[in-house]
Each structure stands twice: as C-alpha cells, then as structure tokens.
Write a protein that binds this DNA or RNA. Structure first.
Lengths: 126, 126
DNA sequence: GTTGACTACGTACCTAGGTACGTAGTTTAC
DNA sequence: GTAAACTACGTACCTAGGTACGTAGTCAAC
C-alpha cells in the first residue's frame, strides 16, 4: 500500500511516518514504480513503536531496543527497562506530591469564606 | 543586590532570571547606578514561582494566577487549580499503566531462561 | 492534455523552559 | 590606568516528537 493508506492503518500521520524514516526508526520500503510500497511488516513495526512509547520509552530508546533485540542482548534490555521503571517511579512520585499539595490548597480555598484565596497565599508563604 | 548574587540566593541561574523577565513573570527591578537592584521582593516572587511549578503549573499559568490574584478572582483560581489536578490525575494514571506494563515484562524476562527476551516479543505481539 | 490527488524531499516551524554566546558597557582590584 | 569580573541586551541554540509548507514529480480520471 502507499504511504497515506499505510499511515491511516497505522494510526499516525503521513508526516510522522516520514519522521520515523528520518530518525531511522522505520525502514524505508522498496519502491514499486515511483512510490514506496508499505506492507504488514511496516504496520507491525509501527505498532511495536506505539506500544513501546506507551511503556514509557523514548524514540531513541526504542531504536536502541531494536539493536539489542537484533544482538539478542537480553541483560541490557532488562537493564534499560529497569532504569525506565525507576524513572517512571520518580516521575509518578513527583506528580503525586504536586497533586497532594494542590488538593490541600483547593480544599482550603473551598473552606475559606471572604478571605483571599488560600491557594495563592499558601504558595507565597509556605 | 545584583543579579548574580540574587540568582544564587534564589537558586536559579542568571539566564533564568533574565528569561523570567523576558516572559513577564518577574518584574525588572529599578536600577541603582548602572545595574539592577534585586531585593527580597524578587526573592519571594521567585520562590512563589518555584512552588507553583512544583504544584504542576506551567509558567504561563503562573502568570495567569498572578493576574487573578491581583483581581481577587478566587473562583477562577480554584477552577484553574482543579483543572490542573485533573490533568495531574490523568498523567499519573498513564505513568502507572506504563509502569505496570513494564514491570510485568521485566518479571517475565527474569523468569525466562534461554528464550528470547519476553520484553521485546511481548511488545511486538500483545 | 489538463486538472486534481497523491508522493517524495528538504527545510522551517512549533512548544516549554530554559541555556549559550557575542558584543558592549561598567565596576572593582591592583 | 588597565585587566578581570560583572552586567545588559539581543539572538541563536537545545530537547522531543512531531507538524507544516513549498517544490517538483507522478498518476488516474475526465
């Protein structure tokens, strides 16, 4: 299939497909005539990229995972995955703290009557 | 005090101070002689910005909060804060899903013996 | 045989929050 | 009185993951 049908099936934009080509994430398919012919191989590859993104990997890391897969370097794949989990852990903790902080402020704001909003005074003074 | 001492006390870089000036987040202090004189007012303002960042607000939103504070618009401040909490909620849920997914994969990888690493095969097939 | 849709390619632009650099003026130390 | 350090200002650059646009080629339909 040609690029626009492929992009539609893969659930990304044509520009994104080209971007992945440029970044070396997605092999450029052979031409059939003047245009590139995309196949299920490419669909699967895009699906893999999307899933790895959902798992928190960056595009660079996804490229790296592919290389390690090719070289069957299981230990390194696991190391990278564990690092990523640690990073997710940290980010989650940060966001939870922000959320807790903010929810306390909003609660205080609801309780306050005609005083100035505690959200800003707390941010200023705590 | 002059900008470099101020930046040090505020815990940001000189470039960041200037950036905040450019973005209209931090008022440019009066000159004393040829150079700007920073005071505790500016220190407090930077501290406020840092805390609001920790609470998950973007610099644009922090500017907006200041304006609403000046106009004493408590309802709008609370609305923005609740929106932000919702956004934090969503982001946290996404990260937790990524983390859960990844931890299952790493666990499967540890259990596997001489098979190919399940992390990549799962990403490919699930 | 020309219009419209599609493709390929290259380059610029976008957000967010800065960072870095070059130039020119000023102040401080010796 | 001059060299080092500091300041002000403007502009360019950075990451990440794309998006948008301009040009030129190609293909199918009418």
């Amino acid at each position: 299939m040609k690029i626009s049908q492929f992009a539609k099936q893969a659930g990304v934009s044509v520009e994104t497909v080209r971007y992945y080509h440029r970044e070396g994430l997605l092999a450029v398919p052979e031409n059939s005539g003047s245009y590139r012919q995309y196949t299920n191989v490419h669909i699967n590859k895009i699906a893999f990229i999307q899933k790895a993104k959902l798992a928190g990997f960056t595009l660079d890391e996804i490229k790296q995972l592919e290389r390690l897969d090719a070289s069957r370097d299981k230990d390194e794949i696991r190391r990278i995955s564990e690092d990523k989990m640690q990073l997710l852990e940290t980010k989650i903790a940060e966001l939870v703290m922000a959320q807790t902080f903010l929810s306390e402020l909003v609660l205080a704001c609801k309780k306050s009557d005609n005083e100035p909003c505690p959200i800003l005074t707390e941010l200023r003074d705590t």
